[in-house]
Design a protein around this nucleic acid. Structure first.
Length: 652
RNA sequence: GCCCGAGUAGCUCAGUCGGCAGAGCGGUUCACUCGUAAUGAACAGGUCAGGGGUUCGAUUCCCCUCUCGGGCUCCA
């Protein structure tokens, strides 16, 4: 046996090490800095503990703490520390699973007698975790026979379930009767595939327990609810603080907070959960959003239709909604001696009836019907959330009836239309998601589903965008592509959905006469670009942090006189701007100028005009523009108006 | 729907041995007339989310309902 081994590094260079050397030894041989930052090693593509001996001839990459995989490991190891702390502090507690997640980790527990964690408990757990970290307990990897594992975890039913069921799970901790474990001596052991940091003294400690929440065991609402503790963990104190700062910044953009502060919309208790009213300022933003959308749809060949908010039950029996979507619908009203009426949860059945009103020719296809359709969905009480999840919403909904031959081209141009339009509202960073047939709730044949899914896949593939598969996430009548947009601070939001539907046209008996003189069933494409106007409004509010671009801003210009004797001129400037089609107001000078400017800035207005003696004399304005370094003086009124016009036209 | 937490003035929040409800901002009025992010004073403003219970007495303790927040499940 040779007494040295040869290791290849990611840069292709080779290194000789004494036989039996570990990842840690390799890191140390490369440099003290790397030795300090090393978390795990990737050996021939597989993640390994730093303490594992390296095989001769291996390609090895040292993963450092600040890297994605390093952080993943740190969070994973911190989750183990959390579990140990909870098992220490709460006799009789048992534990479920505890994986790393984005920015952090969680662990699920069950306390004896159905007890729950309190915020005070989190402090105690935090303190115990820091003790464990100070003890620098090693993470000791082991593989034990399943029988033995069942003894070790005899008191932990969820672990026993994992041991029993893991055979079918590809990310399994078991293999051929062997169970992988990690132990933190003296008294904590968990099922785990690893890898982990060397010991609790390495890289851990920059964490914060964030919250406690309920979570169903294995994510299934038929299972018991466990107590989940969420935490965040980082490789350094600075990174942790940065993360907490980012959370604060995101909270400042929260559309619910801004909607209140900027007087855009509210959810009066008197109306009901998830039902919004838009105030005058929010109403302006919404109207501009809708007007622009209407114009673009008109240009793209859509025809505008209107349909009522309620309908007899029969319509939703035909469409299949009462069979497949009933739990998302408000209960029926009984009218006219027993006839049931429902609030509509979707617009498509109405559009199908419009299509069916007379015989259609292939020459009319693709037929595109657009409606700002208000729909009502009975969302479960725990899920309503600001404007992004409501019970009453308006969809910018359209249904496109096409032939099978046209379907591909139509999907293509539709995707272009969607992405262009979203970009006009300031969202231009996207990825696509393809949602396929739901396992348990779907109508229609597998052949239809396969064909529809393939058509969507091809349309999506032509884009230079990432495509993510969402297995089983389609609607009951068809698969869909959803456009996910990243906002100004990198969060993603589901925006547009494009759904292909072979089923409803059949259910409604929709037909067109083809070139061949025969009757054919059209295909229907459901699509909403905003998703819902409400959600889109919320997303734009967060994207712009309430500072709407000029074309959308509720008030585009505020005019302030320097002193009271400039008020007449200020009022005149505002009036001229309004006459020119802008949204301008003025505020009289009964407070110091600085105070009035401050108020205008807090309202996030695009332009604050200040006018004084010089301006009255010369017919000019001074513009304190949002985001500008300093105010600009002596702008002739007409010049300012022209600039503003350009700003609006270019949707800046 | 389920788990945890929270509802006090328009907004943000103080108010723990149970004993007449507070601040700042905002609003109104008056004074100040000011060239780019907070002028001063006075006044108004509350069924302490709603209902029930315990108590001589409940914003405070208990129960129910509603609403909101964070999660889970579900979803535009």
């Amino acid at each position: 046996m040779p007494d040295t081994i040869s290791i290849t590094l990611p840069d292709g260079l080779a290194r000789e090490l004494p036989a039996g050397s570990t990842g840690a030894d390799l890191a140390a041989a490369i440099g003290t800095r790397l030795a300090r930052d090393a978390v795990i090693a990737v050996v021939n593509g597989t993640e390994r503990d730093l303490g594992d001996p390296l095989p001769d001839g291996a390609t090895v990459e040292i993963v450092t703490a600040a890297s994605e995989r390093g952080l993943f490991t740190i969070r994973h190891s911190t989750a183990h520390v959390l579990a140990q702390a909870v098992l220490d502090l709460f006799p009789g507690a048992t534990f479920g699973i505890g994986p790393p997640v984005e920015d952090g980790f969680y662990y699920d527990f069950e306390l004896p007698g159905g007890a729950t964690f309190s915020p005070d408990d989190l402090e105690r757990i935090d303190a115990r975790m820091r003790e464990i970290i100070a003890e620098a307990q090693p993470f000791v990897r082991d593989e034990i026979p399943s029988d033995r594992a069942r003894e070790v975890f005899a008191a932990h039913p969820y672990k026993l379930e994992i041991i029993a069921g893991a055979a079918e799970d590809p990310t399994s901790v078991t293999e051929a009767g062997v169970v992988r474990t990690y132990e933190n001596p003296p008294n904590f052991i968990d099922l785990c595939r690893g890898p982990h940091v060397r010991d609790t003294g390495h890289h851990l400690g920059h964490f914060k327990l964030m919250r406690v929440a309920g979570a169903y065991w294995r994510g299934d609402e038929r299972n018991p609810m466990l107590q989940r503790i969420y935490g965040t963990a980082w490789h350094s104190k600075a990174a942790l603080e940065e993360h907490l700062h980012r959370l604060e910044e995101a909270a400042k953009r929260d559309h619910r907070k801004l909607g209140n502060e900027l007087d855009l919309f509210s959810f009066p208790d008197e109306i009901g959960s998830g039902l919004a009213v838009f105030h005058p300022k929010g109403g302006i933003v919404r109207r501009i959003m809708e007007d622009y959308s209407r114009r673009r749809h008109e240009e793209a060949g859509y025809e505008f239709v209107y349909s009522p908010h309620i309908t007899k039950a029969g319509l939703f029996e035909t469409s299949g909604h009462l069979e497949w979507f009933a739990e998302g619908m408000f209960p029926p009203m009984e009218l006219d001696g027993g006839t049931e009426y429902y609030l509509k949860p979707m617009n498509c059945p109405f559009h199908c009836l419009i299509f069916r009103h007379r015989t259609r020719s292939y020459r009319e296809l693709p037929l595109r019907m657009f409606e700002f359709g208000s729909v009502y969905r009975y969302e479960k009480s725990g899920v309503v959330h600001g404007l992004t999840r409501v019970r009453g919403m308006t969809q910018d909904d359209a249904h496109i009836f096409t032939t099978k031959e046209q379907m591909g081209d139509e999907l293509d141009s539709l995707l272009t239309f969607v992405l262009d339009l979203l970009a006009d509202y300031g969202l231009d960073d996207f990825y696509l998601e393809l949602s396929t047939r739901p396992e348990e709730k779907a109508i229609g044949s597998h052949e239809d589903w396969d064909e529809a899914t393939e058509a969507l896949r091809q349309a999506a593939a032509k884009r230079d965008l990432d495509l993510v598969l969402d297995e089983g996430g389609g609607a009951f009548y068809g698969p869909k592509i959803s456009v996910q947009a990243r906002d100004a601070i990198g969060r993603t939001w589901q925006m547009s959905t494009l759904q292909l539907d072979f089923q409803e046209p059949q259910r409604f008996g929709l037909e067109y006469v083809g070139r061949d003189g025969q009757r054919h069933t059209p295909i229907m494409i459901h699509r909403a670009l905003f998703g819902s106007v409400e959600r889109f409004f919320g997303v734009l509010t967060e994207h712009y942090a309430g500072a709407f671009p000029t074309w959308l801003a509720p008030v585009q210009v505020r005019v302030l006189g320097v002193r009271g004797d400039h008020d007449d001129y200020a009022a005149a400037v505002a009036a001229r701007l309004r006459a020119a089609g802008f949204r301008a107001d003025w505020v009289e000078a009964d407070e110091p100028l600085g105070a009035r400017i401050r108020r205008a800035k807090l309202e996030k207005l695009p332009h604050v005009l200040v006018v004084g003696d010089d301006d009255v004399a010369a017919g000019t304005v001074a513009d304190n523009a949002r985001g500008a370094e300093r105010p600009e003086r002596d702008i002739p009124f007409d010049d300012f108006a022209a600039r503003l016009r350009a700003e609006v036209a270019e949707r800046r």
